Computed example of a mutant assay.
Amino acid sequence: MMLNSSEKFPTPDATEHFVEQINEQLSQGIFDAENSQLLEGMVEALADKRGLVRLSLVEAFGKIGQPGVPFLVEALTHHSNPVVRRSSAKALAKIRQPDTISHLIGAMVKDEDTVVRSSAAGALAGIGSAALPALLEVIAGEYPEPVKGQATWAIARAGVEAVEPLHLALKSDKTDIRLAALEGIAKIAEEHGDELSQNAILSVLQDDDLEVRLEAIASLSRFPSQVALPKLIPLLEDDNLEVVQRAILALGKLGEPEVLPILQAKLAEKREGIAQFVKIAISQLKCR
């Protein structure tokens, strides 16, 4: 069993001196990564109330790498102090080991501390495509919406190497999985100008599920205007009011002045539920 941090480090100065020693050993290349007592002490020091001290230890664990993983996993899973669990997840995010995925998933879905859950999601995002199957299982499972939201956030930040598994997930028969995959693909398309990802999103503009269609429409605001405008403008005449509303908002976010006359013309429509969305979109355009 680990010592309580108060027993290991009776004063803040003692913790600070310990951290200084760790960093000095790392800089000189003499850190003993086989010293379990030293690594346990580093974990307990993560309880320090000072953010800079914890950050220094997280960075140190990132340099140590694999030898620190078992101690961080143990702390993430069982430590009574949420501050230690939070920092352990952040340290695991620096190391990015796929063999920590199941433990990080466990923390994301079960931990009672919201910061621990978000830190675990951040670590899973950093691991990237290797974490996608486990994250998609969360999306498909019987979990609270906040937990699924964390998983979706992590999926959206899995990086460009996740593009192929995300494209496969976009073909799932489960709406929640398609929505999560859509978010990830949209971010890749936005950040990397990936034509394959853009085409994947365009392909679900006619999805059978309205919610998926609406999210695909919203994501067009993150595309180059030459791609987005030919798809958004025809949607202004769609029979479904929600589709029209979402297209109007996407045009506003896209920020192209050339659509201003088109939006202004929509103000004259008598259809209920249109004018207020057009006004929002126009105000966005005029603020650019």
Rank of each mutant, 00 (worst) to 15 (best):
L57V: 12
I95Q: 07
A75C: 08
L55N: 10
E44H: 00
L251Q: 09
M108V: 05
P98Y: 04
S80Y: 05
H17A: 15
R85P: 13
S36C: 01
E256D: 15
V116M: 10
L135N: 02
D48T: 03
L263E: 06
L249S: 11
R222E: 10
D99F: 12
V69P: 07
V69N: 00
F61H: 09
A75V: 04
A130F: 08
K90T: 02
D111M: 07
P224S: 11
N35G: 01
G41M: 12
N240F: 01
R50Q: 13
S221F: 09
L38H: 10
S283L: 06
I105N: 05
R271L: 08
S27N: 13
H79N: 15
N81T: 08
A91W: 05
S36V: 03
A121C: 02
F31R: 04
A125R: 05
I22K: 05
L170H: 07
E7R: 09
R178A: 00
L285D: 05
R96N: 10
I105P: 06
D209T: 11
D239T: 08
D32P: 03
V115E: 13
T175V: 15
F61E: 08
E24D: 14
L182G: 14
L254Y: 06
P257L: 09
H103E: 07
K286N: 11
A218N: 09
A181E: 02
A121Q: 03
V204A: 05
A91D: 05
S36E: 15
A181C: 08
I233C: 04
W153F: 13
V227Q: 09
V147H: 03
Q25A: 11
L135A: 10
L267W: 07
G106Y: 09
L57R: 03
A93M: 12
V147F: 06
I188V: 14
L260N: 01
R222Y: 04
L92I: 08
C287A: 11
A130N: 07
Q245K: 15
V138R: 10
K90H: 04
